[in-house]
Design a protein around this nucleic acid. Structure first.
Lengths: 150, 150
DNA sequence: ATACGTGCAAAGCCTTTGCAGGTGA
DNA sequence: TCACCTGCAAAGGCTTTGCACGTAT
């Protein structure tokens, strides 16, 4: 699958250069498909291979990649933005999050219940949905196992 | 309906005092059921009736009311927290948001599609859902009308 | 040459915290 | 008295911006 070349193409179309810093950040996300990394986490990880990268560069790159639709920004209500790689649109549109309130881990799940609802919102309210976000907050299987109380 | 007295009771149970500042903030939200106010907005509005209220007091009150389950905190990805009054639990659980990307207005809608899904998450993945958040981002009816392009 | 990219430090937001002074029980 | 509240100012955490220095085209 030509994920990387598709990313490079989108960079070119935006007249943006593929610098070593950007390349490392992109590869980071491609290597970790199910993850949701914060800017700080990206910075720490990239630093292992590129010692002098600045945090500002990380932020600017994350912003750029988000604009180019290569990354997607999400918030899990912990006060910092996180980023995940954008899979194919159809796929992204059906992928949601389970946030564990105990350990903070974020799982994903697939579900396409929402298409019919979106069609109805357009029909009945004239609201044209372009994106959506469905998050469940609760207790994950592992944490539930650790303590039987509550 | 005894919404106010229920709020007062919950304050008492928490051994918290009903100060003029707190009372004004609570009334603000009771008067505006469909709204999602930021701390800054609450501060501005309360100032009209209580000139010397400090922003820190607003933040502390919003935190307290959220802990007491009187308010609910939400994020619409604009970098600041917003608050809305908590209706009955069953109701809250079926109320979601439509965020217009053009004008920023937030509408609400009711839908209880998610109960079945939550039951399945528990059964199939052992994830016990305690809260959820469903947001649609798009273009509202009014904004769609204003410009026929895109 | 010119537009783009980078690291660093400073500045910006929103939010939280420390503190001294007040107030209700 | 003692725990609770408040306003103010300072500090915090995450993110953006200004700037001077590089580097591709």
């Amino acid at each position: 699958m030509g994920q990387l070349s598709s990313v490079y193409r989108r960079l070119e179309e935006g007249a943006k250069r593929l610098t070593p810093q950007r390349e490392l950040i992109i590869k980071l996300f491609l290597e970790r498909p199910g993850q949701h990394l914060s800017a700080e986490e990206v910075h720490q990880l990239v630093k292992q291979e590129f010692r002098d990268i600045g945090l500002a560069t990380v932020y600017r790159t994350l912003e750029l990649l988000t604009k180019l639709d290569i990354l997607h920004q999400i918030h899990f209500n912990d006060g910092r933005a996180r980023y995940e790689i954008n899979r194919e649109t159809a796929d992204v549109h059906r992928h949601h999050h389970l946030v564990c309130l105990r350990c903070g881990r974020v799982e994903e799940f697939q579900e396409d219940l929402l298409e019919a609802l979106e069609a109805r919102l357009l029909r009945e309210r004239g609201f044209r949905v372009m994106d959506h976000e469905l998050k469940f907050f609760g207790v994950c299987h592992q944490c539930e196992g650790k303590s039987a109380n509550t």
